[in-house]
Every structure is written in C-alpha cells, then in structure tokens.
C-alpha cells in the first residue's frame, strides 16, 4: 500500500474548560488517500470541527491542545511542526472552507484582494499577477462576470457567491487537501446542490483530496468514498460509504441513516415513519469515561457497554466499528 496523503493516529485533543480538562477527541485514527474524499458525520459537538482545526494547527490558543497522537502529512509530523512551517502549509497545501460564508470573508477588503493575498503569501506572485489570477479563480468557481466582480466587496455578494469566493480562495494555491467544514449548512437547497457540483468538478480537475464535514447523509452518499461517523469525540464507525449505508455496524450510524428519508425509502420500502435517535449527546463531563458513551441512547445496551469502552471491530469489507455488538447488527 502506498503512503497515504494524511495519516492521523490515536489523536487526542484536550480542551481546558472551567470544569477541567476534557478529551474532545479521544483516540481517533484515519487515513486519507490521494484524491480521496472522506466525510466526517456526526451531531453537533462530536468533534468534527475540532479534528479539522487540529489538522490546520488552528486549535483555539490556550484552550485546546493536542495531548497525544500524531498527524502526518506526506509523512511529515504536523503536531510538532513549527508555527512557520504550519503557516507555510496552511492555505497552501492544506486549506479550509467554513460553515459561515456570510461572515467568513473580511467585510472591508474586496474579494479579489482576499484571494490575491493568498497567492502573494504562498506563491510570491506580484500584485498584478495575483489580481489577474484571482479573477481567473472567480471564473473557475463559476461567478458570472468574474472580471468585473473581482473588485466587489463581500457585502455586494449573496451567500452562495461568498462561499464560491471562499472556495476560490482555498483552491488558489492548488492544495493537496481541502477541508470543507459544513460548506453548505448556511445555504439554501438549490445553492447547496450547486456548491456540491462545484466541489465535485474541482476535485475531478485538480485531484485535490477533500475532507468534508457534514451532517447531511445525502451529501455524504453523493460525494464521498469513505466516511467516519463520530460520536462524543470518538470514532463510532469508519469505512466505505456504500458499505456503511448498506449495513451499518454501529447502532448510532444505523440511527443516523434511518433519520434520512430518501435513503430509507431505497433501503426498506415498507417503513414510512421517520425515526430519530432518542436521547441527547452526553455532556462534556462524560467524555473520556471508560465505557461506551452511546450506551445511554442505545437499545442494544448490555452490561459490558457500561463497564468498558468498546474496542474497534474490523470487518473484511474495510468497515470498522467501535461497538460491543457490531457483529450482531
């Protein structure tokens, strides 16, 4: 097997709060291949965004830190890399787009300037060349009249257009990895579809690997080859998307999938009632305890779920689930 582009091993991220130190990411491992699209799925607060920020080296200063584990990019260790090196990588080899296109662009600079800035910082382009390139990039993310809109301010654009600008900015230096943190959550449905189309096409043309964070199962099914289901900072299930949707090996994944109407309709015709995952996510104090954190919401719960944290069970098709009852599902 060739060297993966990104390799995260036993990552543990601790957050220091008033209540004490909490492991918001606990023993997470995954790999990302060249040109691959992997999706992170899970409820709010399960640590998806924290994982993304830790790869970027942007954990909130003084609050969050990588306690143990490793993040290797091209075999280079990022957890111990200098701030200068991380800065070189950020926006250049690994870039990121965010959930809030309305507020993620700086209101007092033109979009052209904000795109050109990345090119000047990482590629050493001249002011003029960077500006021309910014116009080309706007055109590439399908903003009409890119040449005249490059001098616009963010407030003169719609939410969808701003997210396109963010994508143009992120792809400016042809990164190896693009992290998209819920890129369409704040947009309406038709614009969502357009953004996904755009991301898919760009990936085909540039070969950029994508880490997509979402809680939209439909988007995962459409976009990604592999998915990671996270729960309370831990890996619940990881594996090929079609295999997992076909036969989830973790009760949480199963619950998530049955929440989505159109996927359910394909799987079992006779079920009409939309289900939900009962209960709520555990509080931060529960994180890090040596037991299954999903147990309180799980109908398969047995004594061992409460006694000990479940180990990862691997299956032949590449699925891996952290559940005592994975085989039974």
């Amino acid at each position: 097997m060739t060297e993966p582009l990104l390799k995260v091993e036993n990552l543990r991220i601790e957050l220091t709060t008033r209540a004490g130190v909490t492991p918001v990411i606990d023993n997470l491992s995954f790999e990302l291949g060249h040109g691959e699209n992997i999706s992170f799925v899970g409820e709010s607060g399960c640590g998806k965004s924290m994982t993304a920020l830790s790869i970027m080296g942007l954990l909130p200063e003084g609050v969050g830190r990588i306690a143990s584990g490793s993040i290797q990019f091209h075999g280079e260790e990022l957890t111990t890399a200098s701030t200068e090196r991380l800065r070189d990588i950020r926006g250049n080899e690994i870039s990121m787009i965010f959930q809030e296109p309305m507020t993620s662009l700086n209101p007092v600079y033109t979009v052209g300037e904000q795109i050109a800035e990345v090119l000047r910082a990482h590629q050493g382009l001249s002011k003029k060349a960077a500006w021309d390139m910014a116009a080309e990039l706007l055109d590439a993310v399908r903003i009409p009249n890119a040449k005249s809109r490059v001098g616009d301010y963010p407030f003169q654009m719609s939410g969808g257009q701003r997210q396109r600008v963010m994508i143009a900015m992120a792809l400016a230096c042809k990164p190896k990895i693009l992290i998209a943190d819920e890129p369409t959550t704040a947009l309406d449905v038709t614009v969502q579809a357009q953004i996904f189309d755009l991301l898919r096409d760009l990936r085909r043309n540039t070969g950029t690997s994508i880490i997509m964070i979402t809680h939209d199962m439909g988007a995962v099914a459409e976009m990604a080859e592999r998915m990671i289901v996270m729960y309370a900072g831990r890996n619940a299930e990881i594996g090929p998307v079609d295999q997992i949707i076909d036969r989830p090996r973790h009760p949480y994944t199963k619950g998530l999938i049955s929440c989505v109407p159109h996927i359910v309709a394909n799987l079992t015709e006779e079920r009409h009632d939309l289900t939900e995952v009962p209960g709520i996510v555990p509080s931060l104090q529960e994180f890090g305890k040596n037991r299954c954190l999903f147990a309180s919401r799980c109908n398969l719960r047995t004594d061992e779920c409460l006694r000990e944290r479940p180990p990862a069970r691997e299956f032949e098709n590449g699925q891996k689930a952290d559940c005592w009852h994975a085989e039974e599902l």
């Binding site: 970027m56 942007l58 950020r90 926006g91 900015m169």
Partner: peptide
C-alpha cells in the same frame, strides 16, 4: 474572535498580517 480572522489565519498569513 470573528470568522474572517479565522479565515485569515487559515490562509497561512502571518500573525502581523
């Protein structure tokens, strides 16, 4: 603490910028 400052950091700009 705003989103666009986070974006600026994610671009790989220096602290000063």
């Amino acid at each position: 603490g705003s989103d666009y400052v986070r974006t600026a950091k994610a671009k790989g700009l220096t602290n000063r910028q």
